[in-house]
Nucleic acid binder design. Structure first.
Lengths: 335, 335
DNA sequence: CCTTGATCTGTAATCGATTACTAGATATTT
DNA sequence: AAATATCTAGTAATCGATTACAGATCAAGG
């Protein structure tokens, strides 16, 4: 690998001149400019980022911590970062709750700050990190978070979904989520439940606590929820699961037990995963603009990076979109 | 952020001594050792990797390029890397085929080499990269690759799966894969098909080209394959899909068309994804030891890193394992 | 012809680490 | 006791870039 010194020697100038030509800082005569550019081409010179990082104490790199791989969100982050001249490096944090070890890259100067994708960080850790580095939380984030957030208006979309179910004629609308677990992780589930309640109240219906099933995220919770609802005296006529895979498990168990979905009972999911599109029946779900969220996360991050210290919290919310499919639309109210 | 100079001042020693204590190089008296350690703790000192990288022209970091997120494989890589004192940074390459831009981190000195997870790189690019950096391809890799590979013996396991189908009494065994596309991407699909053919020949059956359907990976190929097989004069009695999601689509379409799966027709998948466990019927599939593959990839990488230049290609193969479930086991041969 | 200012270029300090080299202190050998 | 070997710790060079500062050149104005 050629260094700036090699280029300088080859062009017969000093390293300062080479640096000035390459960065467009300072005045350099056309003659030398040409000589330098020729040397750069001849030697196939690529500036060593490490040297630059050390000198500037900036890495122009954003650490992206993920708990799941959201293809479009990562793409959005990457595109926006590239446009701003930043690299991204990803760190995988399989448990949704991150600990400090995820962030050594920051302390060691390998990244200038972080974007957290669907990762929860304990309040105090987040606060101390945010004090030193630009941090943006994105997806599943909490308005009350001490970091900046880019997220979705969960309450609103949950309200819309519930209205849709009401429009179909459903009156016993049940929910499956992880609200009860408490703590911060449950925050975005809590928001969704609030949205459901708002719609029910608008419709003048009263809220029946027995119609909420609480569990962890995942397929098995769907199975357990189905068992629970089947054990009630009277089945709900709609079940809104706060995650698609829950809905998948739930429907399987319901169908096994002879319940017709969606003819007797409408089911909705959340996240509009690939699974929602291909399962039988196709699942009504909520689609989030994750590419745009990714992009916005970077824009927000850059703003925070610009004015460190000002400490204004920035909270951006996107609207989600209902995707209506057979699992609710083919519901037929029995009078 | 505290630097080594701060630590040295706080401990009343020179920076050389601090470095020696922290890296365990050279002799340092217990007294000074203790003073240094105390200063490190007091100041919460973390060595700046950038400075170290520049000086040593080594980053002790491995670039991991992924096209899909295989949780356990990443975990395996991370564990093994951590044990060897290496960091990993991940780069997401959504298209399975990587281009040069994925590797700028190497040229710029941010990583010492790369592990490619289910990523295909054009032959010439791979060759030139391998000449300069340690590169290991892992999962879906090609024995003929100019890089080192850690992979699974696809031919063998496909042969085993076919024997299993034969044991059930199946005789018209069809396959769905991406063999025909040609090129390197198709390599691991080609291997699987070879395994199927071997088993068929062992059983004295002849190979019917009409019983292979060729398409891209994914759900839609499953649908298309089902349509194709339904159009034949006589249905196969087993279909081996080289990917679980293909099998999922295929089964859906078959069931819609009134074919009973698995009673009339056995179906097998590949990869043992979560979907295989939870779909109806539960899908017989192939489980790969991906955690071990990840670990082995790092071990191989380290070996290559040790003796750059020697250019011995290292190709490690793991055995996969059949996971038998309803989609084949409940097949009942009609005489 | 000298001064002033603008423009161009080079020298050297700097970022934070590692490490070759040096030198003083202590231990060992004769 | 002198000579030699062994520890221990500090000084300073180094990695590859950026940039403050200084020096050189040249044109224009007095």
């Amino acid at each position: 690998m050629a260094t700036i010194t090699d280029v300088a020697r080859s062009a017969g100038v000093s390293v300062a001149t080479v640096s000035r030509v390459l960065n467009g800082t300072g005045q350099v005569s056309d003659l030398l400019k040409r000589r330098v550019m020729k040397a750069v081409k001849d030697l196939d010179y690529q500036p060593n980022l490490i040297g630059r990082m050390l000198r500037c104490s900036k890495s122009r790199t954003i650490l992206v911590v993920i708990s799941i791989l959201l293809r479009d969100m990562i793409t959005g982050i990457r595109d926006a970062a590239a446009e701003a001249g930043y690299e991204i490096i990803m760190q995988y944090c399989p448990e949704m709750d991150a600990d400090l070890s995820q962030f050594t890259m920051l302390h060691r100067g390998q990244a200038d700050g972080a974007i957290l994708v669907e990762v929860q960080v304990p309040k105090d850790v987040l606060a101390s990190l945010s004090a030193s580095y630009p941090i943006v939380q994105c997806g599943g984030a909490n308005q009350l978070s001490s970091a900046n957030t880019v997220s979705v208006n969960y309450e609103d979309i949950a309200c819309q979904m519930t209205r849709h179910l009401l429009d179909l004629g459903c009156r016993r609308i049940a929910t499956v989520g992880i609200v009860g677990r408490g703590g911060e992780t449950a925050y975005f589930s809590r928001e969704r439940l609030n949205g459901v309640h708002r719609a029910l109240e608008e419709a003048g219906l009263e809220i029946d606590p027995a119609l909420h099933f609480d569990g962890l995220f995942g397929y098995n919770t769907g199975l357990a929820a189905a068992d629970y609802f089947l054990s009630l005296d009277k089945l709900p006529d709609a079940i809104f699961c706060f995650q698609d895979t829950m809905a998948f498990g739930l429907i399987q168990r319901l169908v096994q037990s002879g319940v017709r979905v969606p003819e007797d009972l409408a089911v909705a999911g959340f996240d509009n995963t690939d699974l929602a599109k291909v399962m039988t029946p196709a699942l009504t779900s909520v689609d989030q603009p994750i590419y745009e969220i990714g992009q916005e996360a970077v824009r927000t991050w850059l703003m925070v990076e610009q004015d460190q210290g000002s400490k204004i919290g920035r909270h951006v919310q996107f609207d989600a979109r209902l995707v209506l499919r057979d699992s609710t639309e083919k519901f037929r109210k029995l009078i």
